[in-house]
Simulated assay, not measured.
Amino acid sequence: MTEPTAVVLEQQVELRVTGQPDVKNMYGSGHIRPTEAILRYMASGLRAQVYGRWVREDGEMTDAPCSNDYAAHEGDTSEWPGWLADLAATWRPTTPDEDPARIDRLYSEVTEHASTQSIDLHIQRAQRQERLWRSRVERLVSLRAARVEQKQRGEWPAAGVRQNGAQR
Rank of each mutant, 00 (worst) to 15 (best):
G75R: 11
A114L: 04
S67H: 12
R92Y: 12
H122G: 12
A114G: 14
A48T: 01
A88G: 14
P65E: 08
Q124N: 06
P100A: 08
D104R: 08
R56W: 00
H31Y: 05
E112Y: 03
Y70E: 09
T95P: 06
V55Q: 08
P100S: 09
Y107M: 09
G75L: 10
D69M: 07
H122W: 05
D58G: 11
S67A: 15
P34E: 02
N68D: 15
P65Y: 04
Q117H: 02
L84Y: 10
S67F: 05
L39C: 14
S108N: 09
P100N: 13
E109Y: 04
G82C: 04
M26E: 04
E79T: 09
Y27K: 10
R33M: 07
M61K: 05
H113A: 12
L87K: 11
P96T: 03
D63T: 01
D63F: 00
G52T: 00
R131C: 04
A71P: 03
Y51L: 08
H31T: 06
I38V: 10
E57M: 02
L106K: 05
Y70I: 03
P81S: 15
E98M: 06
R92D: 13
W91N: 14
W133A: 14
A37T: 01
A43F: 04
R125S: 10
R128A: 13
L84K: 14
Y51F: 04
I123T: 11
R56M: 02
E60G: 05
Y70D: 11
I38D: 13
P93V: 02
T90K: 08
H113V: 00
Y51D: 12
D86I: 02
S78A: 13
H122T: 03
M26P: 06
V110D: 12
N68T: 11
W83L: 09
T111A: 08
P100G: 13
D86H: 06
Y41M: 08
T94A: 13
E109T: 08
A89D: 14
I119C: 11
E79P: 04
I38W: 05
G59A: 02
